[in-house]
Simulated scan of single mutants.
Amino acid sequence: MTVLKIAICDDDEAAVALHEKIVKNSLQAQGIGYEITTYTQSRNLLYDITDDGFFYDLILLDIEMPGISGMEIPQQVKGFLPNVRIIFVTSHTEYAIDAFELSIFRYVPKSNLETKLTAAVIDAAKLIELEAGQEYTIQTANRMEKIPYKDIFYIQRDGKNASIVSGIGTSKVRKSLQQVFDELNAPEFIFVDRGCIVNIVQIMKVSDGEAVLKNGERLPISRSHLQEVKRQINQFWGAHI
């Protein structure tokens, strides 16, 4: 069973206690294991991650905190926890646009907190669980390489090879795209044109006929695939969140 490692940070001790209670109730109801660490000073959270190597799957952050604000933390921990999910819990709705720009998983206003935070935590947990554990293996006479599904951005045709572009670089395998697609056998991978497979989990948005990925790359979607790509993205998130 997956055990989620969660950090909660708010300079208000009562808020920390409330958020912790909601998180525990939410995950217990879903039968999901968890370990929670709480902070009332943002610098301590940042120190634990950047200096002591603490790992978290999910971080709940207040935005307005003395010293290091919640808005600064995602930028500073990205290099240490590239796949961490961050939920902002705040009463300051004017920060919503900035939170989106930082690729925050969810923005939860403190009004109607219990309902909205419960939904956000469960959705984050399902996504983390979905991404965990699966790996694509490249094996030849000279090497074996395992690439976690969650790290794969896209796979492109490259002559007689398929080039797998992931967070750790580009790996080539002498197989057709269709062979790789069949071996992945996972609903998060879709063709966006005849020469490219994309990981839905890595797509930030579809705009102007392109898939915009979390790493900043923009991949063209062929006109013949566009409607089907949108349908598959909606179907995937509808089934998993």
Rank of each mutant, 00 (worst) to 15 (best):
M144P: 00
I147R: 05
E94L: 08
Q28L: 12
V180G: 08
F189S: 00
E210F: 10
G159Y: 05
M204T: 09
N112W: 10
S91A: 14
Q139K: 14
E228P: 00
E188L: 09
D123Q: 07
E135K: 13
H225P: 01
K146T: 06
D57K: 05
D12T: 14
G70F: 12
F80T: 03
K78T: 10
A119H: 14
S91H: 06
G216S: 09
D98Y: 10
Y39S: 03
L46I: 05
V192R: 02
L177G: 01
G159F: 10
A119G: 06
T140V: 02
F236Q: 05
L184R: 04
Y95G: 11
V212K: 09
T170C: 02
R157K: 12
L226T: 07
S26A: 11
F55Q: 03
T140P: 04
G195F: 06
I138M: 02
H19P: 03
I200G: 02
V16Y: 08
V173Q: 10
I86M: 14
P187Q: 12
K205W: 00
A29N: 07
F88T: 09
V212C: 07
R174V: 07
Q134N: 14
S171K: 09
K5H: 14
G53Y: 06
P66L: 01
H92K: 13
E131T: 13
P66D: 10
R194V: 08
I73R: 00
I138W: 04
L27I: 01
V192K: 04
A211E: 01
R106Q: 10
K160E: 14
L46T: 07
A132P: 00
Y149K: 03
D51W: 11
L113G: 02
D12M: 13
I203P: 01
M1T: 09
E131F: 02
E228H: 14
I221V: 15
E129S: 14
S166R: 03
S207A: 11
S222P: 03
V206R: 00
L226C: 05
V89A: 12
E210S: 13
K110T: 11
I8A: 04
Q139L: 08
N215I: 15
Q232R: 11
I197V: 13
Q178C: 02
V165L: 10
H225Y: 15
K24E: 11
K172Q: 08
I122F: 10
G79I: 11
Q30R: 08
Q156I: 10
G70E: 10
I147K: 09
K214N: 13
E145Q: 10
T37F: 12
I233M: 13
I86V: 14
I32L: 06
F100W: 11
D208R: 13
I155F: 04
E35I: 04
T118K: 08
F181V: 00
Q235M: 01
T50V: 15
T140W: 02
T37W: 04
